[in-house]
Amino acid sequence: MQKFSFNRRLVIIIVCLIVSFALMTVSVTIRNKKSTPPLIQQFGNDIVGLVDRVVALPANGLSGSVSSISELLNTYQENQQLKQQVSELAQTKVRDQTLAKENKQLKKELKLNASLTDYTAVSAAVITRTPSSWQNQVVINKGSAAGVQKNMPVMSGSGLIGRIAEVNKTNSKVELITDNNDSANRFAVQITTKSGTTVNGVLSGYKSTTGQITMDNITTKAKLSKGDKVVTSGLGGVTPKGLYVGTVAKASGSDYGLATKLYITPATDLSSLNVVTVAVTKQ
């Protein structure tokens, strides 16, 4: 009798393990292949997201008021610096407007409808974050109803922070570039060096000890120097051209010494995200 119950327990454990692995494999496959999760999962996520908004409201409000008090302390100094920047920005903005207008006219003449730089920005608030140490994901409050689609790039502040990993009707999950899984941070980017040559490449990972994005396998002779700006190149997929990623921090030989490996300082603080922007491109 004792032996029988032991065997039964062993069978239950093995069956549970097999079912667990099967379920995980299926959900990873769906996540990689399909543009949306199954309908029932979407529905469940929408309902949980709705409840979560009510729960998250006081929690996020509390942390907001705490941070606003701490920010009050160094407001004066910041104000001085910002005033200076604003006057420069006004100049840039006017010039940007003029150029955008000219660009539009020129495109019209060429009968060019959508180019790589065109996108509309959809701003969204962060509801919650995955409580996990390796899955760096946040849930935002815009979904397919607002035009968000899988793999679209997401920005916060001035720079790129990640891509859409899963889309539901009213919320979606964003995988941050700090996430180091197989598909998280492969963005096609380009760097324009001081001498004017353009270097193309793909982001390859995130180095958590220094907080820098890495970019491997660059086989160019162009001299990359510290401070060169890294932007998305718009090649291969839904990412538009010209989203700011960060600046080059260090260039060194790669692990095998044949190519160059770059370390990029991200443009935004990736640990505190409250409002993000999804770059929605027309397809």
Binding site: V51, V55, L62, T178
Partner: peptide, 17 residues
Amino acid sequence: LLDGSISQSFSVQLFHY
């Protein structure tokens, strides 16, 4: 749900790389 909110609100302190 509070687990997620705590991770979001205190992400600077909790997820200190």
